[in-house]
Design a protein around this nucleic acid. Structure first.
Length: 108
DNA sequence: ATCGTGACGAACG
DNA sequence: CCGTTCGCCACGA
């Protein structure tokens, strides 16, 4: 059977992330059997923000491998993301990064 | 089919 | 520790 587009797979994964947990672009890529497609994952989420369905996808739980928020210019989205994470009980250390030891998502 | 682009990541210096 | 460089991949024009 044919696979849906890469985007749809990414969204599907992101939707599985439970509240209070976070994961990285690279991790999602790994789940999709493309450990090197982290960039493509970010690209997918970028396109997502235009879709109305984005409201049902916890995109804010996806951060980069450093445990930080990537915003590449658009800082407004970064502040929103941080706000949403804090609301879920996910806090940042003094370096503005998230401790994976506590919040990393385990795919089950 | 080729080119440019981007919410990434690992390796270097 | 910080900035730079290069490699990766999917997508739209």
């Amino acid at each position: 059977m044919k696979k849906p587009s890469f985007y749809l797979e990414v969204y599907k994964i992101v939707r599985k992330i439970p509240k209070g947990r976070v994961t990285t672009y690279g991790t999602i890529a790994m789940i999709l059997d493309n450990p090197r497609a982290a960039r493509a994952v970010g690209y997918a989420l970028n396109a997502l923000k235009k879709n109305v369905e984005s409201q049902s996808i916890p995109w804010h739980r996806v951060i980069n491998a450093k445990g930080q928020i990537s915003h590449k210019g658009d800082s407004s989205r970064a502040s929103l993301q941080k706000k949403l994470l804090l609301a879920e009980g996910i806090f940042f250390n003094e370096s503005e990064s998230i401790d994976f030891k506590k919040y990393a998502w385990i795919n089950s």
